[in-house]
Amino acid sequence: MAGDGQDQPIIRLRGIRNAFGPQVIHNNLDLDVRRGEIIALVGGSGTGKSVLLRTIVGLNRPAAGSIEVFGQDILHLPKLERRKVEQRWGILFQNGALFSSLTVAQNIQVPLKEHLGLKGPMLEEIAALKIALAGLPPEAGAKYPSELSGGMKKRAGLARALALDPEIVFLDEPTAGLDPIGAAAFDQLIADLRDTVGFTVFLVTHDLDTLATVCDRIAVLGEKRVMVVGTMNDMLEQTNPWIVEYFHGPRGRAALDAKARADARRPD
Protein backbone atom coordinates (compact mmCIF):
# COMPACT_ATOMS: atom_id res chain seq x y z
CA MET A 1 0.00 0.00 0.00
CA ALA A 2 1.33 3.42 -0.88
CA GLY A 3 2.50 5.51 2.04
CA ASP A 4 2.15 2.55 4.38
CA GLY A 5 5.87 2.14 4.98
CA GLN A 6 7.45 1.20 8.27
CA ASP A 7 8.85 4.67 8.99
CA GLN A 8 5.55 6.46 8.34
CA PRO A 9 3.46 7.21 11.42
CA ILE A 10 0.56 4.77 11.60
CA ILE A 11 -1.74 7.54 12.84
CA ARG A 12 -1.13 11.13 11.89
CA LEU A 13 -3.32 13.95 13.18
CA ARG A 14 -2.91 17.46 11.85
CA GLY A 15 -4.70 20.62 12.89
CA ILE A 16 -7.60 18.84 14.55
CA ARG A 17 -10.33 21.11 15.83
CA ASN A 18 -13.27 19.84 17.84
CA ALA A 19 -15.94 22.10 19.25
CA PHE A 20 -19.34 21.53 20.80
CA GLY A 21 -21.24 24.74 20.29
CA PRO A 22 -19.14 27.64 21.59
CA GLN A 23 -16.97 25.29 23.66
CA VAL A 24 -13.73 24.45 21.86
CA ILE A 25 -12.25 21.13 22.98
CA HIS A 26 -9.30 20.80 20.62
CA ASN A 27 -7.74 23.44 18.46
CA ASN A 28 -4.94 22.87 15.98
CA LEU A 29 -4.00 19.56 17.57
CA ASP A 30 -1.18 17.49 16.06
CA LEU A 31 -0.14 13.97 17.00
CA ASP A 32 1.84 11.15 15.41
CA VAL A 33 1.62 7.54 16.53
CA ARG A 34 4.44 5.22 15.49
CA ARG A 35 3.90 1.71 14.28
CA GLY A 36 4.23 -0.91 17.03
CA GLU A 37 4.37 1.43 20.00
CA ILE A 38 2.13 1.67 23.03
CA ILE A 39 1.19 5.31 23.36
CA ALA A 40 -0.91 6.70 26.18
CA LEU A 41 -3.02 9.82 26.11
CA VAL A 42 -3.28 11.59 29.46
CA GLY A 43 -4.84 14.83 30.55
CA GLY A 44 -7.10 16.37 33.15
CA SER A 45 -10.83 15.83 33.17
CA GLY A 46 -12.54 17.68 30.36
CA THR A 47 -9.47 17.98 28.15
CA GLY A 48 -11.17 15.76 25.58
CA LYS A 49 -9.21 12.52 25.77
CA SER A 50 -12.16 10.35 24.90
CA VAL A 51 -13.32 12.86 22.30
CA LEU A 52 -9.94 12.60 20.58
CA LEU A 53 -10.13 8.82 20.59
CA ARG A 54 -13.64 8.94 19.17
CA THR A 55 -12.46 11.41 16.56
CA ILE A 56 -9.71 9.10 15.33
CA VAL A 57 -12.02 6.11 15.00
CA GLY A 58 -14.67 8.14 13.22
CA LEU A 59 -17.38 8.35 15.89
CA ASN A 60 -16.97 12.11 15.97
CA ARG A 61 -16.18 14.24 12.95
CA PRO A 62 -13.73 17.06 13.64
CA ALA A 63 -14.63 20.61 12.61
CA ALA A 64 -11.25 20.94 10.92
CA GLY A 65 -8.01 19.07 10.40
CA SER A 66 -6.89 15.86 8.79
CA ILE A 67 -6.60 12.31 10.12
CA GLU A 68 -4.40 9.80 8.38
CA VAL A 69 -4.44 6.18 9.49
CA PHE A 70 -2.28 3.64 7.62
CA GLY A 71 -1.34 6.55 5.37
CA GLN A 72 -4.92 7.05 4.22
CA ASP A 73 -6.92 10.21 4.76
CA ILE A 74 -9.85 8.56 6.51
CA LEU A 75 -12.03 11.65 6.66
CA HIS A 76 -12.33 11.63 2.88
CA LEU A 77 -12.34 7.93 2.09
CA PRO A 78 -15.30 6.45 0.24
CA LYS A 79 -17.52 4.35 2.52
CA LEU A 80 -16.30 0.99 1.26
CA GLU A 81 -12.64 1.89 1.65
CA ARG A 82 -13.36 3.20 5.10
CA ARG A 83 -14.93 -0.09 6.16
CA LYS A 84 -11.75 -1.83 5.08
CA VAL A 85 -9.70 0.49 7.25
CA GLU A 86 -12.08 -0.10 10.15
CA GLN A 87 -11.36 -3.82 9.92
CA ARG A 88 -7.73 -3.09 10.64
CA TRP A 89 -8.35 -1.60 14.07
CA GLY A 90 -10.12 -2.76 17.20
CA ILE A 91 -11.61 -0.70 19.99
CA LEU A 92 -12.12 -1.49 23.65
CA PHE A 93 -14.73 0.84 25.11
CA GLN A 94 -14.60 1.91 28.71
CA ASN A 95 -17.13 -0.57 30.05
CA GLY A 96 -16.58 -3.20 27.42
CA ALA A 97 -19.67 -2.18 25.41
CA LEU A 98 -20.46 -5.84 24.87
CA PHE A 99 -23.76 -6.61 23.18
CA SER A 100 -25.88 -7.66 26.13
CA SER A 101 -28.11 -10.02 24.17
CA LEU A 102 -25.15 -12.11 22.96
CA THR A 103 -22.81 -14.42 24.84
CA VAL A 104 -19.14 -13.54 25.06
CA ALA A 105 -18.30 -16.02 22.29
CA GLN A 106 -21.04 -14.57 20.07
CA ASN A 107 -19.78 -11.06 20.76
CA ILE A 108 -16.36 -12.06 19.48
CA GLN A 109 -17.90 -13.73 16.45
CA VAL A 110 -19.80 -10.60 15.37
CA PRO A 111 -16.90 -8.95 13.48
CA LEU A 112 -15.78 -12.32 12.11
CA LYS A 113 -19.22 -12.96 10.67
CA GLU A 114 -19.83 -9.44 9.48
CA HIS A 115 -16.50 -8.71 7.88
CA LEU A 116 -15.17 -12.12 6.86
CA GLY A 117 -18.34 -14.14 6.46
CA LEU A 118 -16.87 -16.98 8.50
CA LYS A 119 -19.24 -19.65 9.74
CA GLY A 120 -19.46 -23.00 11.50
CA PRO A 121 -16.85 -24.64 13.72
CA MET A 122 -14.12 -22.23 12.61
CA LEU A 123 -16.02 -19.41 14.33
CA GLU A 124 -16.23 -21.35 17.58
CA GLU A 125 -12.56 -22.17 17.38
CA ILE A 126 -11.43 -18.59 16.79
CA ALA A 127 -13.71 -17.33 19.58
CA ALA A 128 -12.19 -19.89 21.97
CA LEU A 129 -8.70 -18.80 20.90
CA LYS A 130 -9.43 -15.12 21.51
CA ILE A 131 -11.04 -15.89 24.85
CA ALA A 132 -7.86 -17.70 25.87
CA LEU A 133 -5.60 -14.94 24.54
CA ALA A 134 -7.55 -12.35 26.51
CA GLY A 135 -6.93 -14.42 29.64
CA LEU A 136 -10.50 -15.52 30.27
CA PRO A 137 -11.41 -19.01 31.49
CA PRO A 138 -12.93 -21.30 28.81
CA GLU A 139 -16.36 -21.27 30.49
CA ALA A 140 -16.61 -17.49 29.93
CA GLY A 141 -17.50 -18.02 26.27
CA ALA A 142 -20.99 -19.26 27.02
CA LYS A 143 -21.74 -16.50 29.53
CA TYR A 144 -23.71 -13.33 28.93
CA PRO A 145 -22.08 -9.95 29.71
CA SER A 146 -24.40 -9.41 32.69
CA GLU A 147 -22.93 -12.53 34.31
CA LEU A 148 -19.36 -11.21 34.17
CA SER A 149 -17.40 -9.11 36.65
CA GLY A 150 -16.03 -5.72 35.58
CA GLY A 151 -12.56 -7.12 34.91
CA MET A 152 -13.93 -10.00 32.89
CA LYS A 153 -16.07 -7.63 30.83
CA LYS A 154 -12.93 -5.67 29.94
CA ARG A 155 -11.15 -8.84 28.91
CA ALA A 156 -14.15 -9.93 26.87
CA GLY A 157 -14.23 -6.48 25.25
CA LEU A 158 -10.54 -6.84 24.46
CA ALA A 159 -11.15 -10.29 22.99
CA ARG A 160 -13.77 -8.77 20.68
CA ALA A 161 -11.47 -5.88 19.78
CA LEU A 162 -8.80 -8.45 18.86
CA ALA A 163 -11.16 -10.65 16.82
CA LEU A 164 -9.86 -9.53 13.44
CA ASP A 165 -6.21 -9.41 14.56
CA PRO A 166 -6.15 -5.64 14.17
CA GLU A 167 -3.06 -3.57 13.51
CA ILE A 168 -4.13 -0.84 15.93
CA VAL A 169 -5.95 -1.33 19.20
CA PHE A 170 -7.67 1.62 20.85
CA LEU A 171 -8.26 1.26 24.57
CA ASP A 172 -10.38 3.70 26.55
CA GLU A 173 -9.31 3.58 30.21
CA PRO A 174 -8.48 -0.14 30.10
CA THR A 175 -7.60 -0.47 33.79
CA ALA A 176 -10.22 1.86 35.30
CA GLY A 177 -12.30 0.00 37.85
CA LEU A 178 -9.98 -2.98 38.08
CA ASP A 179 -8.26 -4.03 41.28
CA PRO A 180 -4.47 -3.48 41.29
CA ILE A 181 -3.73 -7.14 40.61
CA GLY A 182 -6.25 -7.27 37.78
CA ALA A 183 -4.99 -3.96 36.41
CA ALA A 184 -1.37 -5.14 36.46
CA ALA A 185 -2.38 -8.38 34.75
CA PHE A 186 -4.26 -6.42 32.11
CA ASP A 187 -1.26 -4.17 31.50
CA GLN A 188 0.94 -7.24 31.14
CA LEU A 189 -1.58 -8.82 28.78
CA ILE A 190 -1.53 -5.78 26.51
CA ALA A 191 2.27 -5.65 26.54
CA ASP A 192 2.52 -9.41 25.81
CA LEU A 193 0.04 -9.22 22.97
CA ARG A 194 1.85 -6.23 21.51
CA ASP A 195 5.09 -8.21 21.57
CA THR A 196 3.55 -11.31 20.00
CA VAL A 197 0.81 -10.10 17.71
CA GLY A 198 2.66 -6.88 17.01
CA PHE A 199 -0.08 -4.33 17.02
CA THR A 200 0.05 -0.65 17.88
CA VAL A 201 -1.75 0.41 21.04
CA PHE A 202 -3.36 3.80 21.56
CA LEU A 203 -4.76 4.11 25.03
CA VAL A 204 -6.45 6.70 27.17
CA THR A 205 -5.63 6.22 30.83
CA HIS A 206 -5.25 7.78 34.24
CA ASP A 207 -3.41 4.80 35.62
CA LEU A 208 0.11 5.92 36.47
CA ASP A 209 1.21 2.30 36.83
CA THR A 210 0.14 1.61 33.27
CA LEU A 211 2.04 4.70 32.14
CA ALA A 212 5.17 3.68 34.02
CA THR A 213 5.23 -0.01 33.13
CA VAL A 214 3.94 -0.60 29.61
CA CYS A 215 3.77 2.67 27.70
CA ASP A 216 6.53 3.57 25.25
CA ARG A 217 5.41 7.15 24.91
CA ILE A 218 2.99 9.47 26.64
CA ALA A 219 1.05 12.30 25.02
CA VAL A 220 -0.23 14.98 27.37
CA LEU A 221 -3.41 16.75 26.38
CA GLY A 222 -3.94 20.28 27.61
CA GLU A 223 -4.61 23.81 26.42
CA LYS A 224 -6.76 22.31 23.63
CA ARG A 225 -3.80 20.49 22.03
CA VAL A 226 -1.15 17.87 22.66
CA MET A 227 1.27 19.74 24.88
CA VAL A 228 4.11 17.20 24.94
CA VAL A 229 4.81 13.74 23.64
CA GLY A 230 7.63 11.67 25.03
CA THR A 231 8.79 8.87 27.27
CA MET A 232 8.23 8.75 30.99
CA ASN A 233 11.67 10.23 31.54
CA ASP A 234 10.83 13.12 29.22
CA MET A 235 7.71 13.77 31.28
CA LEU A 236 9.74 13.99 34.47
CA GLU A 237 11.82 16.79 32.99
CA GLN A 238 8.86 18.93 31.98
CA THR A 239 8.27 22.24 33.73
CA ASN A 240 4.60 22.77 32.93
CA PRO A 241 2.92 22.94 36.37
CA TRP A 242 0.14 20.50 35.49
CA ILE A 243 2.59 17.90 34.17
CA VAL A 244 4.85 18.35 37.20
CA GLU A 245 1.88 17.89 39.50
CA TYR A 246 0.71 14.83 37.57
CA PHE A 247 3.99 12.93 37.42
CA HIS A 248 5.69 14.21 40.57
CA GLY A 249 2.63 13.98 42.81
CA PRO A 250 2.55 11.25 45.46
CA ARG A 251 0.86 8.78 43.13
CA GLY A 252 3.29 9.43 40.30
CA ARG A 253 6.23 8.95 42.65
CA ALA A 254 4.81 5.69 43.97
CA ALA A 255 4.27 4.29 40.48
CA LEU A 256 7.81 5.17 39.44
CA ASP A 257 9.31 3.69 42.60
CA ALA A 258 7.36 0.50 42.03
CA LYS A 259 8.65 0.30 38.47
CA ALA A 260 12.22 0.96 39.58
CA ARG A 261 11.99 -1.85 42.12
CA ALA A 262 10.50 -4.20 39.55
CA ASP A 263 13.26 -3.37 37.06
CA ALA A 264 15.91 -3.96 39.71
CA ARG A 265 14.48 -7.37 40.53
CA ARG A 266 14.54 -8.48 36.92
CA PRO A 267 17.71 -10.55 36.20
CA ASP A 268 18.62 -8.79 32.95
Partner: peptide, 11 residues
Protein backbone atom coordinates in the same frame (compact mmCIF):
# COMPACT_ATOMS: atom_id res chain seq x y z
CA UNK B 1 4.12 -20.07 22.08
CA UNK B 2 1.29 -17.68 22.79
CA UNK B 3 -1.32 -19.72 20.93
CA UNK B 4 0.04 -22.96 22.43
CA UNK B 5 -0.74 -21.47 25.84
CA UNK B 6 -4.25 -20.75 24.59
CA UNK B 7 -4.76 -24.43 23.70
CA UNK B 8 -6.88 -25.90 26.45
CA UNK B 9 -9.69 -28.38 26.66
CA UNK B 10 -13.07 -26.94 25.76
CA UNK B 11 -15.49 -26.65 28.67
Amino acid sequence: GQVAKADRPAP
